[in-house]
């Protein structure tokens, strides 16, 4: 009975010390977080952020030819694509590519359905915005070069 009592105390103290060893080790190991607005984490290859358009390697224009497959496949109807042929080109090119990220569930069907692999997941995880419009009308074309001159693009999105 008395040996049990002592044994319990010694065992308990031992387990407390084991716990303290874990935390002190953690204290002197590398931190897993970074100072966010100034530093960014390197994300793994298969990170699934919001979708983005892939530029063609040669021109830097979007690979997308505005077939609309993605918009039709999307279960949440959150992609809007409009396109037309630039002068002297064979294929169409998108003039409007809007993502309503407030509806998007990141299912990835658009990425799979794209015939030319023009859509991919971005690694952009720093999505802060002050307006709802920043997310409900994400203009995916704005990051890429455009085969159209700027006034054409503006005309299209207005119309």
């Amino acid at each position: 009975m008395i040996t049990n009592y002592v044994h319990e105390i010694v065992k308990g103290t031992g387990s407390l010390l084991a716990g303290m060893k874990v935390t002190i080790k953690a204290m002197f190991s590398r931190t897993h977080t970074v100072q966010w607005p100034r530093q960014y984490l390197v994300l793994p290859e298969r990170f699934r952020g919001h979708i983005e358009l892939v530029p063609a390697k040669t021109t830097g224009f979007p690979k997308c030819f505005a077939c609309g497959n993605c918009a039709r496949t999307c279960p949440s109807k959150c992609i809007t694509v409009k396109g037309k042929k630039p002068e002297g080109a064979k294929k169409k090119s998108p003039t409007v590519f809007l993502l309503d990220f407030t509806k998007c569930s990141l299912c990835g069907l658009c990425v799979e359905s794209c015939p030319v692999k023009a859509i991919t997941f971005s690694k952009d995880y720093s999505l802060a915005g002050a307006l709802k419009d920043d997310f409900s009308n994400m203009d995916l074309l704005s990051k890429l070069a455009s085969p159209f001159s700027s006034h054409v693009k503006k005309e299209e999105s207005d119309g």
Binding site: T23, I24, A26, F28, S29, R30, T31, H32, T33, Q35
Partner: peptide, 13 residues
């Protein structure tokens, strides 16, 4: 600071 480091964070910076 200690709390942060023990949880792999930086703490106040």
């Amino acid at each position: 600071k200690t709390a942060g480091r023990m949880q792999f964070r930086h703490g106040p910076m």
